[in-house]
Write a protein that binds this DNA or RNA. Structure first.
Lengths: 364, 364
DNA sequence: CTCAACTCTGAATCGGTAG
DNA sequence: ACTACCGATTCAGAGTTGA
C-alpha cells in the first residue's frame, strides 16, 4: 500500500536514532517518510532569573540545546534541518512544526523559502498556561504549530471526518484548546524532577496524527525528546522513527514507549469535554460596543454607576468591577453584578446578563 | 490631505494622508509616534495587487519559481514599510501588526531583523469564522497579531491593570476571542456591498489601544482602509494619523470617523497600576510620628523588629530597610516590607501599608 | 472515608528610579 | 555608563495534608 522507491527495509522503524538530527536524517532514504512532527529548540533568550510573587523561583528552560548565538545562527540551523526533513518526505508527505513567538516566525518563513506549502497555522491554546508574573505582558497562553505539505499542490492526508467526529460533529478549527502536560502524564526522573523541560501533551499529537496520517504511515520526529510522538504513534498504529541527541531523553522515551499498548480503545476515546458555560468578562460588552464608556447602569432601586472604558464601574468614591461596586452599594460581601445591574434601552430597564447571553450564543 | 514631500513641522493629527505608506511615513518627523497599528496586505502573489515602494506593480506569477520571486518582493515591501515605521516611532513606542499564515511569518522575521523586539504574539480567535467549505483543511479560525517594541529594553506602554479589569480581574491572555466585523458595524458602500474586504472589528482596536496607549497618544495606521483604527482612537481620546492610497476607502473612513463621538474623560479613566503611585519612604512614617523609634513591628508569625530613628529596622544581628529585614528573615530574594510588617494598635495588628496609604491620600 | 485548605509548578525573551 | 535598592507581581490544575 505504500510506494517504495528505495529499500524500505533499511528504515529503522520504531526505534530512536542517537545523534544529530541532520546527520541522522541524511542517513535515511529519501522520500520514505509520510509525516514529520518537529518540536525544535525555541531559542528562548532568557536573561536573569524570574521569581513568582511568592518568591519561589521559576524553573526556566536554560538547557544548552536551546542556546544559539544569534538569529543568523538559528536560521542556519533551521534551514539545515528543514532541508534534510524535506528530502525525507514522500511527495505527498507533510510536516508539522511547533514553536513560540521567539522562533516560529523564522521557522515559518524558512519553511516557505524551502518550498514547503503552508496548509494551516494551528494555535494550541493552553487552558492552564504559566501566568505572567511581573504584569508586564500578556499571559503567554498559546503556542503555534505550522502544518505544511512538501510542496504546493501535493495531495496531503487530511482526515476531515475523523477530526469532525473528535470535535463533536463540528468541523475542526485552527485553534485547539488543550491543557499543558502535567499530572501523571508528565515524565519524571529518578529524583522526581521532570525528565524533560518541554514535554508536549499526548492529546496534541493524538489530534495531529489522527488528522494527518493513516494507520501504518511512517512518522518521523527529529527532536524526539521523551518521545511523545512515538508513544502516540504506537497507540494509534502508526510507525515512528525518533532522533535524539541526549542519551537521558532516549532512555526515558524507550521505557515510556515500551509501556504503551497499541489500539487501546479506552486511551483513544477522547474524553467528552465537560464544557462549562464560557466565561464572558464584562469588559467585552464595552469593547464590543454593547455598552459605551460613560453610559449609566442602574440597580433595582435606580441607583446608578458609570461604565468606564476598561470595563469597571464608577460611583461616587468607589470604582471596581460590576460585582465589587454592587457589593459595595449593598454593603454585602459579594454580589452578582450580571443580575444586579441593568441598562436602559427604549425606556426599558434590562439586565446586563442579557448581553452576556447574547455573546455566549455567538460563541457556540 | 495634501501629499507632503518635506518633513512636517507639525504632525497632521486626525487626518488621513493620501498616498503610498512608505512615502507618507517618510514625510513625517522621526520619533514622533507612540503606537503604530498595521494591517498590511497579505501576501497576494496571485492577485497582482502587490506594489513596490516605488509604486511599480509586482508582476506576480503563480508558478513555482515565481513564488520565490514573490516572497522576495513581499519581503522587500515589508522591510521598506517597517523601516519607515520604525523611524517614526518614539524610543518607547511600539507596533502591532496583524496577519494570517500567508504573511505573518515573513512579517515577524522581518520585524526581528529590523531590530524590533517582540513582546507577545496575540491570537485573535474568531468566534464566527468562515467555515472551510471544501473540508480539506482546518477552519481558518484565527489571525495573528505581533506586538513589538522599537527595540530591546524599551519602556513600552502596557496598561496591565486596565486590561485585567477588562477581563474581570484575571490577567489578559495572548488569545482573544472576538467576533469578526459584521452587522451594523460593517461598512457598506452605496450598492450595499461591503466597503472593504477585511474590515477589522472595533473591539480588537479597543483592546489594543486601551492596553498599549494612553489618552493623548498619537497612533499611526499606515494601511488605514476604512479607518477602524481612527474611529476607535477618536472614541478613546487618542490622536490618529491614517495613510491610505485608495480614495474610496478614504472617503468611507472620513465619513465614518466624523460620526464617532469621543467618550468623556471620566469614562476613559482607567484602573491605574500601583507602580504609578508616588513613592513614600518608610522613614517618613517615623519622621511624622506615625511610628516611633523603638516601636516594635511584627510579621504574620509574630517575629518582631525594632524601628530606628533613621527609618531602618533592627533585629538581632541584622539591620536594614523594611524590605531587607523582611527578606533576611524569610531567606527570600526580596520582600515587600509594606505588606510584610505590621504595627499593633488597640490590640489589633495592622499592616504598615495602611499608614502609607494615609500619607498618599493627604498628598492629593 | 470526605472535603477543605494548602502547596507546588508550567517553553518566560517579565523594573524603575535615584545616585 | 553602572550600582543599589525599593517594592510590585500569578492562573489553573494536580497533589498533599489534615481535620
Amino acid at each position: 500500500m505504500t510506494i517504495r522507491t528505495k529499500p524500505a527495509e533499511i528504515l529503522p522503524l520504531n526505534t530512536i536514532l542517537a545523534g544529530d538530527c541532520v546527520e541522522m536524517m541524511n542517513s535515511l532514504p529519501e522520500a520514505s517518510i509520510d509525516l514529520i512532527f518537529a518540536d525544535p529548540p525555541y531559542n528562548l533568550q532568557l536573561k536573569g532569573q524570574l521569581h513568582r510573587p511568592d518568591n519561589s523561583e521559576v524553573d526556566a528552560v536554560d538547557d544548552h540545546w536551546d542556546q544559539f548565538d544569534s538569529f543568523a545562527a538559528y536560521d542556519q540551523f533551521t534551514r539545515d534541518w528543514l532541508a534534510a526533513a524535506r528530502r525525507l518526505l514522500k511527495p505527498n508527505g507533510a510536516i508539522w512544526v511547533i514553536g513560540s513567538y521567539h522562533n516560529i516566525f523564522r521557522v515559518g518563513a524558512t519553511l516557505q523559502d524551502a518550498g514547503f506549502w503552508i496548509l494551516n497555522d494551528v494555535v494550541w491554546r493552553k487552558s492552564n498556561p504559566m501566568p505572567n508574573f511581573r504584569g508586564k505582558r500578556f499571559t503567554n497562553a498559546h503556542e503555534t504549530m505550522i502544518w505544511a505539505s512538501k510542496s504546493e499542490g501535493a495531495k496531503y492526508t487530511f482526515n476531515y471526518e475523523a477530526l469532525k467526529s473528535l470535535n463533536e460533529g463540528i468541523q475542526m478549527r485552527s485553534d485547539w484548546v488543550l491543557p499543558i502536560c502535567n499530572g501523571g502524564e508528565r515524565l519524571k526522573d529518578a529524583q522526581g524532577e521532570k525528565a524533560h523541560p518541554t514535554q508536549k501533551p499526548e492529546a496534541l499529537l493524538h489530534r495531529v496524527l489522527i488528522g494527518s496520517t493513516n494507520p501504518g504511515d511512517v512518522v518521523l520526529d527529529p527532536f524526539f525528546g521523551t518521545g511523545t510522538t512515538g508513544a502516540v504513534a504506537k497507540m494509534l498504529g502508526r510507525e515512528f522513527i525518533g532522533i535524539e541527541r541526549e542519551a537521558a531523553y532516549r532512555e526515558v522515551a524507550t521505557a515510556r514507549i515500551a509501556k504503551v499498548r497499541k489500539f487501546d480503545r479506552e486511551a483513544l476515546t477522547v474524553t467528552a469535554s465537560k464544557r462549562a458555560e464560557p466565561r464572558v468578562p464584562f469588559g467585552q460588552l464595552v469593547e464590543r460596543g454593547m455598552l459605551r464608556p460613560g453610559e449609566m447602569l442602574v440597580n433595582q432601586r435606580g441607583q446608578a454607576a458609570r461604565v468606564r472604558a476598561d470595563g469597571t464601574l464608577a460611583t461616587d468614591g468607589f470604582n471596581g468591577s460590576i460585582h465589587q461596586v454592587g457589593a459595595h452599594i449593598e454593603g454585602a460581601p459579594s454580589c452578582n453584578g450580571w443580575t444586579y445591574w441593568h441598562f436602559r434601552k427604549d425606556g426599558q430597564t434590562i439586565p446586563i446578563d442579557l448581553l452576556r447571553q447574547q455573546i455566549r450564543s455567538e460563541m457556540t
